[in-house]
Every structure is written in C-alpha cells, then in structure tokens.
Design a protein around this nucleic acid. Sequence first.
DNA 1: TAAGTTGTTCGGGG
DNA 2: CCCCCGAACAACTT
Length: 244
Amino acid sequence: MPEGPSMVFLKEKLSPFIGQKVIEVNGDSPKLAIKKLLNLKITDIKTYGKEIFICFQEISVRIHLMLFGSYLINSKKDGKLKLGLKLKEGEINFYACNVSLITEPLDSLYDWSVDVMNDKWDREKAKNKLKDISDSLICDALLDQHIFAGVGNKLKDELLFDAKIHPESLVGKVPEKKIKAIFDIVVDKSFEYLKWDKEGRPDGFLKVHKQDLCPVHNIKLSSKTLGKTKRKTEFCEICQKLYK
DNA sequence: TAAGTTGTTCGGGG
DNA sequence: CCCCCGAACAACTT
C-alpha cells in the first residue's frame, strides 16, 4: 500500500467519515492514549507523502503503513490491530502500522509543497534541494522524502524508465531539461498509479519494476541494489542514459 | 521454505 | 552536530 498515491486513495475512501463522531476506540497502542479520541468528531483527512492524518479539533492521528501495514474499512481481520475507530456509520481498522498522536497544528510541522501529489507541489524548491545533493545518485534522490514526498521504490523505477535516465546517474550531471522532465513525470506517474489503484490493479502501471523484459527492446532488464538507500532497482541499460 | 519486499527509525561509531 | 551503517520491525508472497 505504502506509496503516496495509495494514501491519496485511502484519503478518498475515508472522506465520507468526516463529520462523524468516534463511538469506540480499539487497538494495541496503549502508550498513545488513543482512547482520548473517544467522542471526538473527525474534521478532516489529509495526506503528506506516505503519511495520512485523521484530524480532529485539537488533535491529529498520524498513520504510516510502512512496508507491511494494511487497513480495512467496515470490516476487520485477525492480526495486530494498531488502531480501530468505530464511527456512527462504519469503522476503520489499521494493522501493523505506525500510529502516533499529534497535538501541534499540522501546518507548523509539514511543508505541504514537498508532497508531489499536493496542489502546492513546488518544483523550484525541489530543484534547489537537488542542487544541495549533486553528488548523490538520482535513484537515491527520488526516494528522499524531504524532496519528493510520496515517491517509493515502485514509482522510482518507473519514473527513471520514462525519463530515460540511468538510476546511477549523478544528480548534478543530469541536464536541467531532464530534471524538468522528471518533475512532470513524478506528478503524472503518481496520478497514473492512483488511477490504477482505484481500478483495483495497483501494479497495472508497472513497466520495469519487478518485470523481466524491457517493454521497448524486449531484452532482459538489469536488477541491482543501488545507492545509500540500498533499494532494488530495475532498469534498462539501453533505454536509460547514464549521466556521470 | 527461506528469502524478498511498496519503508522508516533508532543507536553507535567516526 | 552530521553522516553512515546495520539492526530492528512488520506481514505476506513466491
């Protein structure tokens, strides 16, 4: 579930609960005092990259699904329930994820313009941050949540393939024109991912990630663990140009 | 079956 | 104080 588009999808699914009051709280997060959510009314649902927030008047619940987290709406399953909210009309259950409570205003903690799926996504800001890490590999840069909040390993592979950039390219050596192309593709890919997710085939948009053959050349794709992030990366040696 | 994975946080060492 | 690294955690698939 965990890349940004999946969280935007979840936000859409949770939006009908806005305005409803919590009538029961469950979950294995005693230290978090989640019980204090009882009787509070959901005021908003927000996302920031791979994080989702269920907002109340003076408190927000931050949920990050990490690698293995999951959720069920209006149903439940066996497993580590971290947070379960029963509302007037339905219930929301989160499993195996990070749950925390935030009492500060979210606007003071989060810069929404870093989220690639947010209307306020700021390319200039991203461009300047890339200048600070010109020695990094582009595959690492794309996974940097302080620059491209929401991009995960699947999007990373797909973005680089579409942009025709080799994952081991150095940020500072990638032509500015190509960087601009990445910015367009980041947004397009994210929303394409969202579209496929809504159709029930979240992996439908994948061309190279976890694939065998290059869709253009029909040759074997390369698969390497790269960069300081040490994430598996699939790419085509022919399609994707190395800038270094 | 054991290995791999859509991700992040923590502590220690340099 | 920063960066880097490895460990830890989690649930499901192949």
